[in-house]
Amino acid sequence: MALSAAQAGEARQKKDIRDRWLLSAPALLLILVAGVGPLLIVVLYSFLAPGSYGDVKWEFSSQGWFNVFFARDIFDDTVSLADAHFSIFWRSIKLALGTTVLCAIFGFPTAYFIATRPPHNRSVWLFLITIPFWTNMLIRTFAIQELIRTEGIINSVLLKLGVISAPVQMLYTDFAILLGMTYVHLPLMVLPLYASLEKLDFRLIEAAYDLYASRFNVLMKVIVPLVKPGLIAGSILVFIPALSSYVIPRVLGGGKNLMIGNLIELQFGQGRNWPLGAALSVTLVIIVLFAMLYYVRNAGKAGGSSHG
């Protein structure tokens, strides 16, 4: 009897394990097919030689990776660092960081406002936050273009009012890219921030005021440290897609102000250098990986011991 009970228990355990695998199979399959697989192919392509009309030749080559970091002069074959690539990487990182900071600055008051509404009103405000997602991003980006271009609505109104005498160049600048990226990514910052703020015990704010904290100190010493998890989550959600933006810098930045996404697209399209494009893509993944490691570790440290 005891033996059969043990056997039955073992059988049930086996079935449990099998069921778990079965239940997670669809998700695992999706990750494998749509995530890991393509990434491996990209890594593989980065070590192949370019074909003449795009595509790749199935022979090993380190040219793709070489070209990420170095440029060979087409006339005298001298090798120099690929300054153009570095500056585009650096530009992209700066713009993505700027977007993250702007999203935090605009997102925090928004999230705070929603979190301090009466509970039954909050879902309405959250609903409003998602409105921009209803329309395709490309269309929204063109709408921004319409607003800020030289003959656009803002310039026309300002000219009419006599505030300015000549149209201000806003489109095809970094300002335009930052504006577009902040607008598109803002909800990604607001939602996690709201989730943190909603859990915030507002009696702590009273306690801080009671203990002589100024408004600024209440914000910096109490609210911000307590919503840090939301701030970190929001920053990650904004920074990563902002770094690899493609549509916004293309439409609002014009052809000249490239970001990494545009550079990669160029290699797969007009450049016909798939291995270089693949190597650039892997580089982007590595940058994101290190940025995240650095950020999460430092954010954790600052949260753990906030002396001084």
């Binding site: 009696r203 702590l204 009273e206 801080a208 005021y209 009671d210 904290a213 440290p225 906030s306």
Partner: peptide
Amino acid sequence: PNQRPVNTVFQNYALFPHLTVAENIGF
């Protein structure tokens, strides 16, 4: 409240969870 020489012990204590005991007392 932050201008009054009056302090409160709250019903649920309202201690700052992100600070240590000493940092709470010294706040």
